[in-house]
């Protein structure tokens, strides 16, 4: 399916030539991700074609919705192997929200589902009550803060434009629990303290939506695109 978005952007003077692919698997916030890229001068392609995924200079996996459905769709579209192949090349990869969770080994969402297993770990549901015994409203739909785990790592990541404690916009019911803590780039507290973004070589993925997080969020995209593709 070729999504027909009426985006009607005025051409920016600093139009970028790099190929940006946004994976379209019928789930999610494609418009706002597209808009964030376009506002920075890119002309992203919303696609479900293997060739586009592999040939991209920057690959973005967005998504809001159910883990199981998403994996089923990626398999049906035969995109699992191309995503892995792309990541193996070392070119920059961005996962947003469900696009972060799908990287993991498995999710407990509506029964167990296997994920892409690119990052070892599991996806859990938020508890319905917090440690203090208060009811936790799930999904979390709000602006919440991200806190760094390691300053050096942070400064080398696309979050280098953010301050420790900046607010980002979150909409989710599940959170990731990486087996290897060294991939945790930021943490956030909602009922419990959890991993809100990861970095692992060329993979950067966040639970929050930078494209909906105001100017700070757009800066994250800018920083993501600032990574030199050819140097990797």
């Amino acid at each position: 399916m070729n999504t027909t978005l009426d985006v009607g952007f005025k051409k920016l003077e600093t139009e970028k030539e790099d190929k940006v692919a946004i994976i379209d698997y019928n789930l999610g916030n494609l418009f706002s991700v597209y808009h964030a890229c376009a506002s920075l001068g890119y002309n992203p392609k919303i696609t479900n074609q293997k060739a586009d995924v592999i040939d991209a200079d920057y690959l973005i996996l967005p998504g809001v919705g159910a883990f199981g459905d998403a994996m089923d769709t990626l398999k049906r579209l035969d995109l699992v192997a191309p995503i892995k192949e792309y990541i193996a090349t070392g070119k920059p990869f961005l996962g947003v929200c469900l696009g972060l969770q799908l990287l993991f080994t498995e999710s407990e969402e509506f029964g167990n589902h296997k994920g892409l297993n690119i990052v070892e770990g599991v996806v859990h549901k938020f508890p319905s009550i917090d440690k203090m015994g208060n009811i936790l409203k799930v999904p979390q739909i709000e602006w919440n803060q991200i806190f760094l785990t390691d300053k050096t790592k942070w400064e080398k990541s696309p979050l280098n434009c953010c301050k420790n404690g900046d607010f980002m916009y979150f909409v989710h019911s599940y959170y990731v629990l990486p087996s290897n803590k060294s991939v945790v780039l930021s943490t956030t507290t909602y009922g419990l303290e959890y991993c809100s973004s990861i970095i692992s070589n060329n993979i950067f993925a966040c639970q929050f939506h930078p494209e909906k997080s105001g100017q700070h969020g757009i800066e994250i995209y800018k920083s993501f695109f600032g990574q030199n593709v050819h140097a990797l």
């Binding site: 602006w143 803060q145 806190f147 785990t149 301050k163 404690g165 607010f167 803590k181």
Partner: peptide, 26 residues
């Protein structure tokens, strides 16, 4: 999470700019 960070949480230096909790929206 590493110990270094835990220490920072306890000392409160990480909560600069707002405490951890739900924000009210305008």
């Amino acid at each position: 999470m590493d110990k270094e960070v835990n220490k920072e949480y306890k000392s409160g230096s990480l909560s600069k700019g707002g405490f951890r909790g739900l924000t009210k929206r305008i």
